[in-house]
Nucleic acid binder design. Structure first.
Length: 814
DNA sequence: TACTCCATGCAA
DNA sequence: TGCATGGAGTAA
């Protein structure tokens, strides 16, 4: 009888030695092992048990003696379809990730098995003589003798406070008294947020830190653990200790709920399409029904009703019996968004979102795979939904950077969408009011289909936008964040009982503190970045690594007085309160909306007219739709304009266009004021006029001249490590090898290599960062060269303390 | 001679 | 990453 072999993606491999591993399928498992099923296998010289995914099966004549056999299967039926199994190696080659990293994206987190160590007393062990063992050893023996099932490493940690690698345990293992086994165990639990409330009559002793946390807690009542940690600056360990001492209670609440059908009814979209919408929808349907797969860009100015159009298309595809995936950026996956879909499509909608509990995530995943759900709505990872017979993928706001993964596998959802569109002979619809330059270029050059909506739906008209020159404009009563012009507009708006939205894309109170005498900037101990002063908790905080310490007034190095400057949202809120004492002001940023419900509640309250002014970070800039908002103010448009990143123009244009589009979505004409110190900057004027076409013309010329995407692909190779010198050397060495390889072996390949340099935030979380930027043509040959260079490099002992990664078309190249 | 420690290399 | 292997060094 022939031998059956399986190609497996094994978990916990490193990129250096990752590849499909071949295992023997034992006779007994022949029926159960098939592609897409997970198995456990012995791996490595110690034959430790690991989870692996079956990628493919093959027959073999003669058995190779080096091959090991599969231990058992973990699934009764395949988790991955042929399509997904094909996508796995595709992703490995493009994103320089391991096979199993790709697999993990495609299966719901709750379904994951983890390999855990279990310890139990050897059956042969009889020698219960206390005098033979040390205290700790004896405790371990006692504990394990009592546990029939044995104990996991984690359980031992909890009971005895010992590490799995401690001497006592290792000693017992060596003597054969304790036996270690490892087995796959299901890791299921619920993604909830931890809330904490004080036990008021608590009368024990507390450490100073615990006391301060306790006092705060008594003042505020119930808060999330995260918020408490923000306000008091203590670590979660301190908070936990508080609960252990009985001073507080920690409980969990579900973070996310599916909208009820009844609530959804109110959010139904208008049933009728405008003539323009109907015409575009018809065109799209025609392409959609064509047998060939295609990608299309739907450009529609803000308020033109793109949603209504693609809902129409979705309906059509569903009616034809095919499945639909809709992706939205993180920020716009709100209960309102879901309600729109639930209202239109009822129970056939499944939701993919990081806020779901693991159980829910798994349920939704199964509903999709089984075909009960025909439409998936979710964020980036929803493009991997196990939809059979996929007919349509809609990407709303396709330019959003949340579609690009910032950790391995560093994929872009748009690329995965295109792969699936081709595989399924389906249709991919990219939607945006400010498309990415790359997508618009593809549409203009005929690689994508192109459709546009140029009129606002209903009576809404495009807002009137003005730039306010902060160099010449008088400030309102000495308030540096608010100009006279903006103050007048806000006050008029208040008088008319309308609402205003103000954008300031920086959190905190003061964004900068510097010593008057020695000019030292107060910066994070772990990152090369200045600390932001937060008035809400009187602390200095790092927005990169989360470091936080109590604020102080005197310079740490010379004792001089600190000068605080730079305004964030907290300061803006303060100044607005002083300027408009009668106005009801709402601040929205990640500090005020630590949990999901807080944001929901606040937006609902604003929508109900309980506030007059909303001031916030980019959270307020996108996707919100409030009838009564007629004024939008951008407090400072300047931050993103002068960074070196090649996408900064695009980002500025996008943000401004979007936020301006929040004004006048109802019956009244909207106004927008953009405050800037550089009123001559052309991109501000283009955004003010909402002139995407001209923006594109300007930008594409720059991209062509500089050979940036879409005229080349970019690869960033990043180096991270503790010692700056080593990291720098690693980057330089890699750069040298790159040059050498390309000039010696592939002199004909077009490539531009930029010198290795420190990342713009050169230190983050205590680690130094360097990068190499390359402009090249993303071909198979090129990718293979890079992959082999990375593998060779990570084998170099000199740089073992440096991690290398490759990021194709990164979101930023800073 | 026996044993520990660490650098090295490999994973099916 | 994590484990086995073996050579170097050390103690007896």
């Amino acid at each position: 009888m022939n031998l059956l072999l399986a190609q497996l993606a094994v978990e916990n491999t490193t990129y250096r030695f990752d590849k499909p591993f071949t295992y023997i399928v034992p006779e007994a498992l022949r029926a159960a092992v098939c592609p897409g099923v997970r198995v456990t296998v012995p791996f490595g010289s110690g034959n430790r048990t690991r989870v692996a995914m079956v990628l493919a099966l093959q027959e073999a004549e003669q058995p190779d003696s080096r091959l090991k056999a599969i231990l058992k299967t973990l699934d009764d039926e395949p988790l991955l379809s042929a399509e997904m199994l094909e996508l796995v190696p595709w992703m490995k080659s493009r994103y320089y990730c391991t096979l199993f990293e790709a697999v993990k994206l495609m299966i719901p987190a709750g379904i994951g098995y983890k390999i855990v160590n279990r310890y139990r007393i050897s059956a042969a062990f009889k020698d219960y003589d206390r005098t033979l063992y040390g205290d700790l050893e004896w405790q371990i023996i006692q504990q394990l003798s009592n546990a029939k099932q044995g104990m996991t490493g984690a359980q031992l940690m909890v009971k005895l406070g010992i590490d799995e690698k401690c001497d006592a345990l290792c000693g017992l293992l060596e003597k054969g008294i304790v036996i270690r086994e490892n087995a796959a165990s299901r890791n299921m639990g619920d993604a909830t947020s931890k809330m904490i409330c004080a036990v008021p009559d608590f009368s024990g002793t507390l450490s100073p830190k615990q006391q301060s946390a306790f006092d705060t807690l008594c003042d505020v009542g119930t808060v999330s653990v995260r918020e408490l940690s923000y306000f008091t600056g203590v670590s979660t360990a301190v908070i936990k200790a508080l609960a252990d001492k009985g001073a507080a209670e920690i409980f969990e609440v579900e973070r996310f709920r599916r909208p009820k059908l009844s609530a959804a009814e109110q959010n139904a979209l208008p049933k009728t399409l405008s003539p323009e919408q109907a015409r575009v929808a018809q065109e799209i349907l025609r392409e959609c029904d064509a047998p060939e797969p295609s990608v299309a860009l739907l450009y529609g100015i803000t308020g033109s009703g793109k949603t209504a159009v693609f809902m129409h298309v979705i309906r059509h595809v569903l009616d034809a019996g095919r499945g639909v995936i809709v992706t939205v950026p993180e920020i716009s996956l709100t209960p309102q968004t879901l309600a729109v879909f639930t209202a239109a499509f009822g129970d056939t909608v499944a939701v993919f979102h990081s806020g779901l509990s693991m159980g829910e995530r798994m349920d939704e995943w199964k509903r999709v795979r089984s075909g009960q759900a025909k439409i998936v709505v979710g964020t980036r990872s929803a493009v991997f939904a196990p939809m059979q017979n996929l007919g349509l993928i809609v990407m709303d706001e396709e330019q959003e950077s949340t579609y690009k993964s910032e950790s391995s596998p560093r994929y872009h959802a748009r690329e995965i969408a295109k792969f699936r569109t081709n595989y399924n002979r389906a249709y991919c619809l990219l939607c945006s009011a400010t498309p990415s330059v790359e997508s618009y270029y593809m549409a203009k050059s005929g690689k994508y289909q192109y459709h546009e909506l140029l009129n606002r739906y209903g009576e809404a008209i495009v807002p009137d936008v003005r730039l306010v020159d902060m160099n010449s404009e008088d400030l309102y009563r000495g308030k540096p964040l608010i100009s006279m012009a903006l103050a007048r507009a806000v006050s008029e708006n208040l008088e008319q009982g309308r609402q205003s939205i103000l954008l300031l894309n920086r959190r905190g109170y003061h964004t900068y503190a510097v010593c008057r005498d020695c000019k030292t900037v107060v910066s994070c101990p772990n990152c090369s970045i200045s600390l932001t002063y937060h008035a809400a908790n009187n602390r200095l905080m790092c927005h990169y690594c989360g470091h936080s310490e109590p604020a102080y007034a005197r310079c740490r190095s010379c004792g001089g007085e600190l000068t605080f400057s730079g305004g964030g949202t907290q300061k803006a809120e303060d100044q607005l309160r002083e300027a408009f004492p009668e106005a009801r002001i709402l601040r929205i940023d990640t500090d005020t909306t630590a949990n999901k419900y807080a944001l929901e509640k606040k937006l609902a309250a604003f929508s109900a007219g309980e506030y007059d002014i909303m001031v916030g970070t980019q959270m307020v800039a996108k996707g919100l739709d409030f009838e009564n908002v007629t004024l939008v103010g951008v407090l400072s448009a300047d931050q993103s304009l002068y960074s070196d990143d090649y996408r900064s123009n695009e980002r500025t244009f996008d943000l401004l266009t979007q936020v301006v589009g929040r004004a006048g979505r109802g019956r009244f004409r909207g106004t927008a004021l953009i405050q800037t110190h550089v009123p001559e900057n052309p991109y501000l004027h283009l955004a003010a006029r909402q002139d995407y076409a001209r923006f594109f013309e300007t930008e594409i010329r720059f991209r062509r001249a500089m050979l940036y995407p879409p005229f080349s692909d970019i690869l960033q190779i990043g180096f991270v490590g503790e010692k700056e010198e080593t990291v720098r050397l690693a980057a330089e060495e890699f750069s040298a090898r790159l040059c050498e390889t390309f000039s010696r072996d592939y002199p004909t390949l077009p490539i531009r290599l930029l010198r290795a340099s420190a990342a713009s935030v050169s230190r983050m979380g205590g680690k130094y960062r360097y990068k190499i930027i390359m402009k090249y043509k993303n071909t198979k040959q090129f990718r293979e060269i890079i992959a082999s260079l990375i593998i060779a490099f990570s084998a170099d002992k000199r740089f073992s303390a440096v991690t290398v990664y490759a990021d194709p078309n990164p979101d930023t190249i800073l």
